[in-house]
Design a binder for these strands. Structure first.
Lengths: 163, 163
DNA sequence: ACATAATAGCTGCCTAGGCAGATATTGTTT
DNA sequence: AAACAATATCTGCCTAGGCAGCTATTATGT
């Protein structure tokens, strides 16, 4: 148990997890978007497609949680995928508030065809990491994400995303 | 050497580093901003203040790189810190293109007074991690960040941030 | 010396996404 | 069953930050 890993007087931003994570995300996301610049969909849209295909999500609300976006942004993202014929909206019969999302065959094709771009980037980046290092990193990040989620849930001083 | 950690057919978004990092950042940053909601500065502004105080940065361009923002956004961020009397701009004499930034005593006070909020959050989140796990995570993330930076530099298909 | 390129900073413009409010539907209390 | 709360989606509005273009200054090549 690390009661106090960080202390005010020894704190350095270069070793701050928040700094490292934010900076990494700030480099990755625009680059990923750039990899998609010549495509008909954006990187975020691709992430949504893949999550639908893999059954990780199947409604707008799911996608909002998955991407960490708000529901308004998600509605608009789905609007575009629908307009391009990659996704179909169907009002659910069991619960008429929800709109079920499903991929069209073209959506499935687009999701698949773009996957190699992202994987190639990551495999390049991870070239100097051993396989066990990558596994460790993924495991620690997964736990960290879980810890943050519960911490934010416990401390409901402010309404959180996916409202 | 992990030549190919990720493969197209075994790829799952839940184990994707990009997903984990982006999602974590998407949870952390708004929460950090919320912690500052009652303050006169935002979280990003605080990060800039601290980086100036610690000598990690001392110009706009430095801060842009540190935050992963573009230079326009940084100009406006500094504008606000200057308007609030927390930072002073001084044209450099050695190189008259650059504007040196320095904290006022009030800026120093504000930077210091807000640090505990962030550290407390992180110490709560890290409660279930051993000290060595945190160290490992920081080390792996630092290397990952470095690897991404060099990867992006090698592949200059598109101009990168801090233009 | 002169042309060219690179760098620091600033400004206008635009978009992605956050926020709050509205509707429709379902669940829970009393 | 009436009231209230919660959830899913959608819409308008607004801001932070990305992008491109501009000037001033310095560095580099010829």
């Amino acid at each position: 148990m690390t009661k106090n890993y960080y202390k005010v007087d020894t704190f350095q931003s270069r070793k701050a997890l928040g700094y490292l994570i934010r900076r990494t995300a700030n480099l990755i996301v625009p680059h990923a978007e750039a990899l998609f610049a010549d495509q008909e969909i954006t990187f975020s849209q691709w992430v949504a497609l893949v999550s639908l295909r893999d059954g990780l999500t199947n409604t707008c609300a799911d996608i909002a949680r998955h991407l960490g976006h708000d529901s308004g942004a998600t509605t608009r993202l789905i609007d575009q995928l629908e307009a391009r014929g990659l996704v179909v909206r169907t009002r659910s019969q069991e619960d008429r508030r929800v709109v079920k999302l499903s991929l069209t065959s073209e959506g499935r094709a687009v999701a698949k065809s773009l996957t190699p771009r992202i994987l190639e980037f990551w495999n390049d980046v991870l070239n100097d990491f051993s396989s066990s290092e990558v596994t460790t990193l993924i495991e620690l990040l997964t736990r960290l994400l879980g810890a943050i989620e519960t911490e934010l849930a416990n401390e409901p001083q402010k309404a959180r995303s996916a409202r």
